[in-house]
Amino acid sequence: MKQQLICSVVLVLLAAANPANALYIGASDGSLYELDVSTNSKTLIGNTGTMLDIALNPITNTLYGVRSDSLYMIDTATASTTLVGGSLSMNGLTFDSAGTLYGSGGSNLYTIDITTGSSSLVGFTGFTSSGDIAFDDAGNLFLSATGGSGSDQLVSLDAGTGAGTALGSFGFSAVYGLNFSDSTLYGFTLAGQTLSIDTSSGAATYLASNGIGAFGADGAGGVVDVPEPASIAMLGLGLVALGFSRRRKN
């Protein structure tokens, strides 16, 4: 019984620390939005200047973006930016669960030092990056790549070598934002569409019009988030309370 209570406390606190469906979208005009996919409601935060993509660090909850070939930190409360540095010809960004930042540009995959903005080549993907990359909750890396007949396509990437494998066409063009959340890979287009994407075939299903001309997207999702200090403190208090309760019963 005690173990069940402790597990319940842990699950509640982790759920509170990681709200589902909320993500950030950087628009083509530089506007930064927070979007709730479940309700299709959006909140304008401010303007960052046009970012080619954005990525949220799961370790620090810091948002980063690439603009004019440089890496920036973005304040998610005001959309103000701080230059990190670098010379990055990239249009796709994402973090893995360990806090390593990956970037896609041209037909290459890179890792990026978030303290300097310098990049290191991982390898050749064999596909041209259309606008974003994203990990799922199993650590699989996906790329939105340009395809034939005016439609972008989903590509699976080897995060160790960069090698890409085509999975299939989205059936939509300009899929410039990807984010994995609640067991679903979402796509966001320049036309302001929200899509759900089948990660085995690449086929995309239209969900809603969000009205945001996406240039990039990211949020809590595929990578495993680390609980914030406040959540850890709450967990500790909960366990202490359970301990006192058990003593009284004895």
Rank of each mutant, 00 (worst) to 15 (best):
V66K: 02
T76P: 04
I45D: 01
A55P: 04
T94C: 10
F95L: 11
A79F: 13
G85P: 00
Y110H: 06
Y110L: 09
L56R: 12
Y72N: 14
Y72I: 14
D69Q: 13
T76Q: 07
N61I: 12
G103E: 00
D36M: 15
G106I: 09
G92C: 06
N47R: 13
D96M: 06
L35S: 12
R67S: 06
S80V: 15
N47Y: 03
N61H: 12
L109T: 01
G92T: 12
K42T: 07
Y102R: 07
M90E: 02
N61F: 09
G86I: 13
M90P: 00
M73Y: 03
D36A: 15
L71E: 02
D53P: 02
M73A: 12
T78V: 13
K42S: 06
V84Q: 00
T81R: 08
S97A: 09
D113T: 09
D96Y: 03
D113R: 12
D75A: 13
M90K: 08
D36R: 15
L101P: 00
P58F: 10
I54K: 10
G117H: 04
T62V: 15
L71N: 00
S89N: 08
L44N: 08
D96K: 08
T48G: 05
D75K: 14
I74W: 06
I112F: 03
M73C: 06
D69V: 10
S107N: 05
P58H: 14
L63A: 06
D75G: 07
Y64H: 10
